[in-house]
């Protein structure tokens, strides 16, 4: 493999990897506050991209994206309010089925609104042939945008959870719901907020990746399964590890093209998922001592 090809694979891997990481963090945010795995996580990414594309027909790019993200956040919040908030300690099975149903409905709605065609936002800077030279290969500036925006988002989130009072309240709910209530925090609002937040970051990812990877109504499930793989690799609930795991998966996937037929590329993440679930369900980076006390 020559160095040009190597760089190309590497940058493709990074681009996808950081997206997977964002989806994984979306899983983690909701999981940490509710203990729910939201099977509809990938649909937030799809919605962000699709809505922005539709809005862009009527307004400039930046407002279209901002509005799309806000709309997706609203949808995320509404989903929580209508389908989750009022359930009394639902079983895991029930939550799995409900979020799967939500994922299907969102996808079907998207199909009926936007059809099954592949769409995309225009490149934010220049066009598809604009490129920056990195070592020996040429890389689209959009790649840097994706990686940059997502990195900023990860950093902002960790600051948010660490330093803002709202973020701290959310963490308090995750750590001990009962105690949080006693401190005057309303955990239900925190759950709604976690859905909005996780929808929001998904939507941002959906927008910035759209020029490169395109948007389609059924892109959600495959993103969700990869995001989940990444979340598990990093140890469910651990967002910093998810970034590392995301980049790892993205790079493995992109380099696998050189040895495996394209048709099997999607099966890689799934195989990794099964493998990790079988041998280390607490993740690559989690401690097995802590895992002994958990239920998988």
């Amino acid at each position: 493999m020559n160095s040009t090809l190597f760089c190309q694979y590497l940058f493709a891997g990074l681009t996808y990897g950081i997206i997977y990481a964002i989806v994984a963090i979306g899983f983690n945010i909701i999981y940490n506050t509710t203990g729910i795995i939201n099977f509809a996580q990938g649909e937030f990414v799809m919605l962000g991209g699709m809505i922005a594309i539709s809005l862009h027909a009527h307004m400039p790019l930046l407002p279209a994206i901002v509005l799309a993200v806000l709309l997706t956040m609203a949808i995320g919040g509404l989903i929580e309010i209508f389908f989750i908030r009022w359930l009394q300690s639902p079983s895991v099975l029930r939550m799995i089925i409900i979020t799967i149903g939500l994922s299907i409905l969102t996808r079907e709605a998207a199909l009926h609104i936007w059809g099954s065609s592949v769409r995309s936002l225009p490149y934010f800077i220049g066009n598809e042939i604009t490129s920056i030279k990195v070592f020996s290969s040429r890389v689209s500036p959009q790649v840097f945008l994706v990686v940059g925006v997502c990195s900023v988002m990860v950093a902002a989130l960790s600051l948010f959870f660490k330093y803002s009072s709202l973020g701290r309240e959310m963490r308090a709910c995750a750590a001990n719901r009962r105690a949080a209530i006693l401190c005057g925090i309303n955990p239900r609002n925190m759950v709604t907020l976690s859905f909005m937040l996780s929808a929001g970051i998904g939507a941002v990812a959906g927008c910035v990746m759209s020029p490169i990877t395109y948007s389609q109504y059924d892109m959600g499930p495959s993103l969700a399964i990869k995001g989940f793989t990444v979340a598990i690799l990093g140890g469910l609930g651990n967002s910093m590890a998810a970034v590392a795991a995301g980049l790892l998966l993205g790079i493995i996937e992109s380099f696998s093209i050189s040895v495996l037929p394209l048709a099997f590329q999607d099966a890689i993440a799934t195989s990794i998922l099964l493998l990790i679930l079988f041998v280390r369900p607490h993740g690559l980076f989690g401690s097995s001592a802590a895992a002994r006390l958990k239920d998988f």
């Binding site: 795995i37 895991v92 099975l93 799995i96 399964i225 989940f228 598990i232 037929p261 048709a263 099997f264 999607d266 099966a267 799934t270 195989s271 998922l273 099964l274 679930l277 079988f278 369900p281 239920d295 998988f296």
Partner: peptide
């Protein structure tokens, strides 16, 4: 053996992953 050791979300995801792999194999 390994799949049924898992519970809840983990079990759901593992069986889902199995289904996806079979789907990919017949499609590919």
């Amino acid at each position: 053996g390994p799949v049924l050791k898992l519970k809840g979300h983990y079990l759901a995801m593992a069986t889902l992953g199995f289904g996806i792999i079979i789907f990919r194999i017949v499609l590919g």
